[in-house]
Write a protein that binds this DNA or RNA. Structure first.
Lengths: 240, 240
DNA sequence: CAGTGGTCTAGACCACTAA
DNA sequence: TAGTGGTCTAGACCACTGT
């Protein structure tokens, strides 16, 4: 574990425990360097992680402060700052999956492009109804390349794909592109999520990649408008 | 302008011009340091910016590569990786605003909390219909504190608030929290955006802050489901 | 094994804030 | 003016990839 990640974890833990508040700045970077027996640059890398999570902010010439309003999330809101699957996101709840449909086939042109595949690279194509605490919650339609995620059988699908990839395949999940939109309900929404013709749906289309840049998931996830929203934090960044 | 930002801009420009492709890695960090007459750490900070924009990725022991699929955005999609107002986002199009409603009043409790205000700090409360190329596009409902954004009259509202803040007030826009959801159409949607009872709406609730952490905007922006979606990129980050 | 990115150091100077 | 964060350097060692 890199030292700056470790320091960021310790600082985050202190912030969440309320040991640093928004009243008073954190210790300055040089003091932190002394406290953690490291250099100032390493402290800055640690603080950068917390800034990117929206936990703190720095003000040149003044200090580093804890942000207020760190908690706007309601129960089924869906944070996607770092990628974890539904199973992990809903820790403390019972998450199960009904596999509605499962197929292995050749990819369509759009899938070839988004997943960077040859026309002859087979893909899984499956629908899963994600159920939280026995209540149907989201409908997922996923396309994943067989060569990138081998051994993805229905047993794995009933549980957690992400856990399987990390634990069994030893892969590290990396970046994700997401397109978020509202949509009219389709036949699956009506059948499995109790949507009617005037129930707005929230849809997330996403391409998720491994740490080395290989895309491994192209999926569409939908839920009723009253069953969850998406929370995004955007730190300040220089315009390029 | 910081050197690493400048380098990032130059590299981005080369990537967009196709001078670096996904076939061949970028020059290694030491070569880049020589080319730009700087140190390796500065090169790394520049590359970090491009990684966070999703333009490139690095693979330890191998090299730094340009990502493929850099273009999934359709005309009215709405990227929010770095914050710019609608006016700037839609460069090349004619953006105008009808001010539907304008009021100055005391803040409600939720607004006090989200904007970090005392009960006696007045806020602007206004609705704007944003019109692109003469077509009604989005309905914005904004609450902004008078003390943070003084002089926000209807003349400014007709044009660009963000331009006013940057150019006239000299402020730097910083981070933003956003909650994205689907919603049923309300009276404004029906009246101004031609929504009917079965037209799903996409709503973005956001708190935007200045660079120094002061929140200055609490707003709700809505558009029809078929008039734009939101694109988000999430780089890989260590879990804290 | 050579080449690459990831991390870390000790120190320097600058830009900005606040008293 | 003292204290703080922002940037930058020159160099070191480690972890990983690919041959």
């Amino acid at each position: 574990m890199a030292k700056y990640v470790d320091i960021a974890k310790q600082l985050k833990s202190k912030i969440l425990k309320g040991e640093y508040t928004s009243e008073v700045p954190l210790p300055d970077q040089i003091s932190l360097a002394v406290i953690f027996k490291t250099s100032r640059v390493t402290i800055q890398k640690a603080l950068d992680l917390l800034i990117n999570e929206g936990l703190i902010y720095s003000k040149q010439g003044s200090g580093t402060y804890v942000k207020q309003n760190i908690n706007l999330l309601s129960k089924f809101d869906f944070t996607i700052d770092q990628y974890v699957g539904t199973t992990e996101l809903m820790r403390g709840h019972t998450v199960t999956s009904d596999v509605i449909d499962y197929d292995v086939r050749l990819p369509q042109p759009k899938e070839q492009e988004n997943l960077n595949l040859a026309f002859s690279d087979a893909v899984y194509d499956f629908y899963r109804l994600r159920i939280v605490d026995d209540v149907p919650w989201k409908m997922e339609h996923s396309i994943m390349p067989v060569k990138v995620v081998p051994g993805l059988n229905q047993g794995v699908l009933k549980h957690s794909i992400y856990r399987y990839m990390r634990a069994d395949l030893g892969e590290t999940i990396g970046a994700a592109y997401r397109i978020i939109r509202a949509a009219q309900p389709n036949a699956y929404d009506r059948r499995y999520l109790s949507a009617t013709s005037d129930t707005p749906m929230l849809e997330v289309e996403q391409i998720v990649s491994l740490a080395d840049g290989t895309p491994f998931e192209y999926s569409f996830t939908r839920n009723r408008y009253d069953e969850g929203s998406i929370v995004v934090y955007h730190p300040e960044r220089p315009m390029l």
